[in-house]
Simulated scan of single mutants.
Amino acid sequence: MRKSIIKFTFIAFCCGLIILLIFNYRYPFITPAVGNWSVGYMQTQKLFPAPKLDENNIFSYKEIDALIPEDIDYIADPFFIQDSSKFYLFTELKGRGNANIALFSSKDGNNYQYLGIVLDEDFHLSYPQVFKYKHEYYMLPEAKGSGNVLLYKAKRFPMEWEISDTLLKDTSIKDPSILLSDELNLIVGVNDNLEQLFFTADSLEGKWKEHPNYKSRWGNESRPGGRFFKVDEEWYLPVQNRALGYGTGISIHKLNNNSGQLNLSLAHKMYLGPQPEILWFNRGMHHLDVQSNEKGYYMVYDGDRNTDGEKAFQYKRTLKFNFIDLYNYFRN
């Protein structure tokens, strides 16, 4: 009897160890600690495969910190719009309090100047998704702290913005990414549990409702990491990968519309990830905004820095994402 108990205990221990090793391989328990985010940009002729990032075209949080009196922690979530041969770049800027939206401009897409804070609220702002619709400029940021999905309109572009509409009331979602097209108007975001939510309307000003037929992804690679973009008549969305902790990288997912059922499927795994050769992006990346132009594609992105080797123990994330992946596997 005693031998049987010892044998069972040994087998259980070995099985548990194997499971932990598998879990650790997929989502390591110990990862590099999150540091400070900076922003980069470049022009490229082709998007796929991912181009080599330009290590010179970066403005770091340190550079911006030196320009303003307030200490800042990071700049992140860059979105841009090109108008009249000028580039306007909007970013999240985190200082002492809630994050605000900052603006940079460039005549050539290479030499940017910091113009200041253009949007400041009592709640945290990020993800300043700026776009043009019917000859007007709009911004759909993450305004989760307000409890709503808020749409801003330029009162005086690019410096002054005001709330023009509440697209979704009493709905708190992270990083709402909007697609306005002839075939579909769509907002995709995630809730606090990293469950994808899809909303549609007949126009930007229409009544946005949760789409009645979509396949949601839950867990890793569910949260948007940039705006929708089109290549060869297909729509794609950057999504965040958290394999090595928050902000590991960006994967590209393709939007599918099968007889009215919407879903996002993996197209390019870890399109952008940690850049060991770039100091400011050596820990990871978590945002990409790309748009086509006359030279090919212009892209902006952010990356995170870890220079002191600090580590983070993330057992909850490891267990959670592994079990969610198992759930997703059996659900499918």
Score class of each variant (00 low, 15 high):
I64M: 10
S85M: 04
T91P: 00
L89F: 03
T31L: 01
P51E: 05
L47R: 07
I72E: 04
I75C: 04
E63N: 13
A50I: 05
W37F: 11
V34P: 01
A50F: 08
K94V: 09
Y41F: 15
A66L: 15
L47K: 06
G95P: 07
D73K: 14
L21T: 08
I18C: 11
I19E: 10
N36V: 03
I101V: 08
A50M: 07
F29P: 04
S85G: 03
Q45V: 09
M42D: 02
P28G: 00
N110T: 12
G116I: 08
Q82I: 14
T91H: 05
F48I: 15
T44Q: 07
G16C: 03
E92T: 14
G40P: 01
S106C: 12
Y27M: 00
P78E: 05
N98T: 10
I58V: 10
F80L: 11
G35P: 06
F80N: 04
K107D: 15
C15G: 08
F48Q: 03
A99T: 03
I117L: 10
G116T: 08
P49F: 11
N56H: 13
P49K: 10
L93C: 10
I75W: 01
D71V: 08
I22W: 12
L93W: 06
G97C: 12
P51G: 13
V34E: 04
L115F: 01
S84I: 01
D83S: 11
F90C: 03
V39N: 02
G95S: 15
F104I: 06
F23C: 11
F87Y: 13
I22K: 06
N100P: 01
N24P: 03
L89T: 00
E70W: 10
A102S: 11
V34C: 02
A76E: 08
Y112S: 02
T44S: 12
C14M: 15
C14E: 09
E92M: 14
K94R: 12
G116P: 05
K62W: 07
Y27R: 00
I58N: 00
I18V: 13
V118Q: 04
L67T: 07
W37K: 00
M42F: 09
D54V: 05
D83Q: 15
E63L: 07
G109K: 14
D54K: 14
L17E: 04
A66G: 11
Y61R: 06
K46L: 04
Y74W: 11
P78T: 10
